[in-house]
Amino acid sequence: MNDEQRMLADMAEELFASLGHTATLENDWSSIEQVALDGLLLGEDDGGFGGSWEDALVVFRIAGYHGLSLPIAEAAIAAAVARRSSARGTIASHTSGEVAGGRFTGSISGICCGEGAAFVVAPSPAGGSLVIETAALGLEAHESVAGETRHAGTAQDAPVTLVDYDVFAMGALARVAQVAGALDAALARSVEYANERQQFGRALGKFQAVQQALATFAGEAAATNCAAMGAAQAMGRRSAAFAVAAAKLRANRAIGVGTSVAHQVHGAIGFTQEYPLHQLTRRLWAWRSEFGNDAYWSEVLGRRIVARGAENFWADLTASDH
């Protein structure tokens, strides 16, 4: 981390720890706006912070660590893509329909916290992304399995702006960063619990079977953090198609191992509403589907690699270092 990122991390750590998983848009969004985190990825010329994807990774990861349900990543991406700093925007994962002559007819779903957002950035059916005013979408709300608000909406001949960004990939990278944080948090909680909880006259953490399971979990959390970093670096080079696919795929796989060890180590207490493990694990399960499940990214990545051929695999992998 450079000095600026360390300051960003300290600020995010303090703020997100105090907000915690009970923070709501209604009560707490102003505290995010106060420190301009919604403008994290927006260029300085457009009134933003002008941060890199590596800066964003620092913040999104800590948001995941504290189980924050505020749409910080979504707002930061939307602002950067639409180049708007005046009001909160958000992003969506799915679009079906048609764009013709700058107007969109169809439906958009997987909108994160759409209510109260001024605009939505969604994948465009013709490639790139489209920006649409939320007022043009009749929103229907539902909750993700983690209790996070998601919306779907339809538009009829609504004006849109097309932009040359892949909002789906950006959303995927944001989720990878959040997964990295949430896995580390669930691991920390599990280690703490294993060292405290006594059974058979000793701490759970003294049992070799428990130690080995947590060590396996640690490897998965470490892999996710490294994948997030690799993809953030690649995004900065604007050559991230391979890296984002690989990172989301890797993060998705880590979620299964991590959440099952976390719950197994905690035993029945981890299954209660009262105990603060599910704020992490339920989010992890929801995020595994959002912005590309394993099948989606496998297809993208597998097709690309096979089309390039065996002889190019390693050369391609190393060519994107710079």
Binding site: G230, F242, A247, E299, I305
Partner: peptide, 30 residues
């Protein structure tokens, strides 16, 4: 396996290539 997938266009093989490549890429970062 990638060479094999070049003519055996099965979805299963492509998915496995992707999974192994994602793992390779991540391990390289680590």
């Amino acid at each position: 396996l990638i060479r094999h997938a070049g003519w055996d266009r099965s979805e299963q093989v492509e998915n496995l290539v992707a999974r192994l490549a994602a793992e390779t890429w991540t391990l390289r970062m680590m």
